[in-house]
Design a protein around this nucleic acid. Structure first.
Length: 850
RNA sequence: GCCCUCGUGGUGAAAUUGGUAGACACAAAGGACUUAAAAUCCUUGCCAUUUAUGGAGUGCCGGUUCGAGUCCGGCCGAGGGCACCA
């Protein structure tokens, strides 16, 4: 029997698809649309297994939807601005554009090898001025609408990349790309006013029905809405400072007050800027790091001022004012009141500086006399005590509301909603990014670049080896004229998250030269019906995209889409076993060898290798598997099959040699099955079991549909294994006619198209040469066909399964009971017992209680 | 510390509204075919005396129910998110 030659077949079909433009998006807008989008890749060099998984999942969906009659938009592009290009440029002396182009070429070729149903005519690349021109225009429009601000602010400074990072890009106090410890620095930056939409971004989460709850929750926590109160404290001890306002979510604990704490960046702290002790203290604060986490692990320290604060609810109560390292200027008002009994940080601070700890909330299980705070602050529900007119209220719900209303009445405070979300700083001191279309005149005033002068093109001739920002160092680029006036260009470029915040719009009208999108196209294609990508973008990219849509829609009645992605799916990572030598150095698979089928040894030294747990593939752990090698050895269909087969797409999947080999084998087995079905001949005229095939095929068809809809692709794969096992038996059954078998197998192969597109195309044309593959469609079956004549009834005694009988469907209960009682294994339980009760579940089970 | 998710064989995993636990696959063991190997196919898969039968069994303890992997309460463990956010 001839083997399946995946190489010739895959090449053949890819060529046919290219020639026939099989995946070109139809511009006819009369059909129902489906916009299927996977997160576009950063062109880092070669595709990795994560890409294979991401794009295979998307491709299955896109092909399935297309077969189901949708007009499918399934585009691909490149997130091609960013730092790795600059780093590579320095290392290899290759210009970022050359490096990027080279990588795009390689990766595009590799993606094509996978047989993805992508409309390459819509390809976009964010580093192309044809793309970023429109981005600059959006920027100018946002500037006009007041959604952009320039602020002097502390920023996270990455000393290695010499760039500013957004808070979101700082992970564990380190830059998300360089890994360098981040410092604090004050710079003038451009900010998108994302906080203007905080409430909207929060509220609309509940409308995203097809998003994972997990992601919605992460965004909710990130936006971090909290209801509290701004409280004014009168201050003694200084002629200029008469008042300090604090924000608190627990104003009801005001009688537990024992100090006030303000941030070192608070305006009031300026009084002490010449005080040596304060300068020391402030330096200490800066050294502890920039991130909140670094502060978290540091000791809580304070600088005692000579100021005294008066409790607005009890003028007799006077407390010291501290400047403390754990109070941040960019949240709330940069000032808090400390109630150590009911806040852990305040408690630690109070213990250190020997301040009083007075409980004002009593836990339900305690009594007032015996209740004391030791090392742990009490933050749960309880009853207010020691608080005069607040006593007896239940905390926090009742007491917080009541306190706010009292404070508002007395005009010493007002209820306030606070958000954790901060404005999005987009300035980057990098070369390889979208130029900001802004200039400054001699006075430093902002002069936006007129739209007719766009794009502001990134110059090619830069010295990437200079320190700092190469654009700033360029001899001529930044000097230009606007309306005959000499101006200087902004030399910062945009955060690459801006590039990816609207690319899904561009895909709808990639060739519109006039504007970033064509509203007619958007009206048809948007929103993205299914967006697929890694969960690592759950907050940043997705939140920024949601913001960008609102920013475009702001003061723009034509644009009615605020949510870019109506469906979101986050896939898990691809993992692989890890190996280390005795010195804990990571080893790649090439460096080790299996001996006696048991243990691994290091080839070089012969030492025993430590096999570690499977972890996400990464260069640093040396556990990557190159997809192109796998395609070479096993074919695109096999790699697609395996990447979907072992785990649900939402969970991590473990790559294994055995797994890919098994997938490859199965494709061969299916091939043989197809050949057998084609060549099968009838030798007996008595054909009465054709319905078995039809029933089975219909049933599995409904199962596959269901599993496809839920992204249970691993179960669909299992369904196909089941199909194979059944069809092998159908072939042997001489009471099934061959034509009928072929007809049903044609359905199976159609169902297989999204998963093994080359293989299924090849088999289908062999099975039915008359078929035009461009016109085939997802089968339709009548549900009536899966109605069985028989069903299995489980017989239970006292809830335990004792037997199983096959009976006609919808049999009467009395008939089933009668039959059940005749089963010998049931009989023996009934012989000495009387039936007290029986439970019957239609067509499923009968349970006797004895 | 807070929030969320998840704990099912040697492994990856299946399992409508509570209704046959372990589909499907990998690995392993045994067998068939073969001079042999590879490939292929079959069987097994925890305990008890077996292809029959019974028992235990979905992290642990308890509850609701005729019946719990699924629902409820408590604990233990793993992973993820957030974090001096007041």
């Amino acid at each position: 029997m001839q083997k399946y030659n995946f190489k010739t077949s895959e090449e053949k079909w890819q060529k046919i698809w290219e020639e026939k433009k099989s995946f070109k998006t139809s511009i006819k807008k009369n059909k129902k649309k489906f916009y299927c989008l996977e997160m576009f890749p950063y062109p880092s060099g070669k595709i990795h297994m994560g890409h294979v998984r991401n794009y295979t999942i998307g491709d299955v969906l896109a092909r399935y939807k297309k077969l189901s009659g949708f007009n499918v938009l399934h585009p691909m592009g490149w997130d091609s601005f960013g730092m790795p290009a600059e780093n590579a440029a320095r290392e290899n002396n290759l210009h970022p554009i050359k490096w990027t182009e080279k990588n795009i070429k390689t990766m595009k070729r590799q993606l094509k090898l996978l047989g993805l149903s992508i409309d390459w005519d819509r390809e976009i690349s964010t580093c192309d001025s044809k793309y970023y021109k429109h981005q600059q225009e959006f920027f100018l429009e946002m500037y006009e609408k007041g959604l952009l601000k320039k602020k002097k602010n502390y920023v996270n400074w990455d000393p290695v990349d010499k760039t500013v990072l957004a808070n979101e890009q700082v992970i564990d106090g380190k830059g998300w790309r360089s890994g360098a410890v981040v410092e604090r620095k004050k710079l003038s930056q451009w900010f998108f006013d994302i906080t203007k939409f905080s409430q909207q971004l929060l509220d609309n989460l509940k409308n995203l029905k097809n998003w994972p709850d997990k992601v919605k929750l992460m965004q909710k926590n990130w936006i971090g809405r909290s209801l509290g109160c701004e409280i004014d404290f009168d201050i003694l001890g200084n002629d200029y400072v008469k008042k300090i306002s604090c924000f608190s979510t627990r104003p009801d604990t005001l009688f537990g007050l024992s100090f006030l704490a303000i941030s070192a960046d608070h305006p009031v702290s300026k009084i002490y800027e010449n005080n040596k002790e304060f300068i020391n203290f402030k330096n200490k604060c800066l050294k502890t790091g920039t991130t909140e986490e670094a502060l978290a692990n540091a000791e809580k320290i304070g600088f005692k001022t000579n100021l005294i604060a008066i409790n607005p609810l009890d003028k007799q109560m006077k407390v010291p004012v501290y400047i403390a390292n754990f109070v941040l200027m960019d949240y709330g008002l940069g000032a808090i009141f400390g109630c150590p009994a009911h806040d852990q940080r305040d408690l630690e601070f109070a213990r250190k500086y020997k301040l009083p700890v007075n409980p004002v909330v009593l836990p339900p299980s305690e009594n007032e006399k015996g209740f004391k705070i030791n090392k742990k602050a009490y933050t749960e529900e309880g009853k207010i005590i020691n608080s005069k007119f607040l006593n007896g209220l239940s905390a926090p719900d009742e007491s917080v509301a009541k306190t706010i209303s009292i404070l508002e009445e007395k005009k010493i405070g007002k209820g306030k909603i606070n958000f954790r979300l901060k404005d999005w700083g987009v300035s980057r001191q990098r070369y390889w990014g979208c130029p900001i279309p802004i200039t400054y005149d001699n006075n430093g005033d902002i002069i936006p670049v007129p739209k007719k002068n766009l794009p502001v093109i990134l110059p090619k001739d830069v010295d990437l080896n200079c320190k700092g920002n190469p654009l700033d160092q360029h001899p001529t680029w930044k000097y230009t004229k606007i309306n005959n006036k000499e101006v200087t260009r902004e030399t910062d470029t945009l955060d690459t998250f801006v590039d990816s915040s609207w690319y899904f719009l561009r895909f709808c009208s990639p060739n519109n030269l006039n504007y970033g999108y064509d509203i007619e196209d958007l009206n048809y294609w948007m929103p993205v019906d299914q967006y697929i990508g890694g969960v690592e973008h759950a907050i940043l990219h997705l939140l920024y995209s949601r913001f960008f849509m609102r920013a475009i829609a702001y003061q723009n009645n034509n644009f009615k889409y605020v949510e870019p992605f109506s469906g979101l799916f986050t896939q898990g990572m691809v993992c692989h076993e890890t190996y280390k030598d005795q010195k804990d150095k990571w080893l790649s698979q090439d460096e080790i060898e299996l001996v006696n089928n048991k243990t691994y040894i290091k080839k070089e030294s012969g030492e025993k290798v430590k096999v570690g747990s499977p972890e996400a593939m990464s260069k640093s752990k040396k556990n990557i598997v190159d997809p192109e090698n796998v395609i070479k050895d096993y074919g695109a269909d096999s790699i697609r099959w395996f990447i979907l087969s072992d785990s649900p797409p939402s969970k991590d999947v473990q790559w294994s040699e055995e797994g890919i080999a098994a997938s490859f084998k199965f494709v061969q087995k299916l091939w043989n099955l197809n050949l057998n079905i084609i060549s099968r001949k009838d030798d007996i005229t008595n054909k009465n079991e054709d319905t078995i095939v039809e029933k089975y095929t219909t049933k599995i068809f409904f199962n596959i549909n269901k599993n496809l809809a839920n992204f249970h692709y691993n179960v669909v794969i299992a369904n196909f294994y089941d199909i194979y096992n059944n069809y092998i038996n159908f072939i042997k059954n001489k009471n099934i006619s061959s034509d009928f078998l072929r007809k049903n197998f044609e359905t199976i192969l159609t169902l297989l198209m999204p998963f093994l597109p080359h293989f299924a195309s090849e088999c289908l044309t062999m099975l039915n040469p008359k078929l035009n593959l461009e016109n085939i469609s997802w089968p339709v079956y009548d549900k009536v066909l899966i109605e069985d004549f028989d069903c299995n009834i489980v017989i239970q005694i006292n809830g335990k399964k004792r037997s199983l009988i096959k009976l006609p469907i919808n049999s009467k209960e009395s008939f089933i009971v009668e039959k059940a009682k005749q089963v010998s294994n049931v009989k023996k339980y009934l012989i000495n017992n009387s039936i007290k009760k029986q439970i019957y579940v239609k067509n499923k089970l009968i349970n006797f209680i004895v």
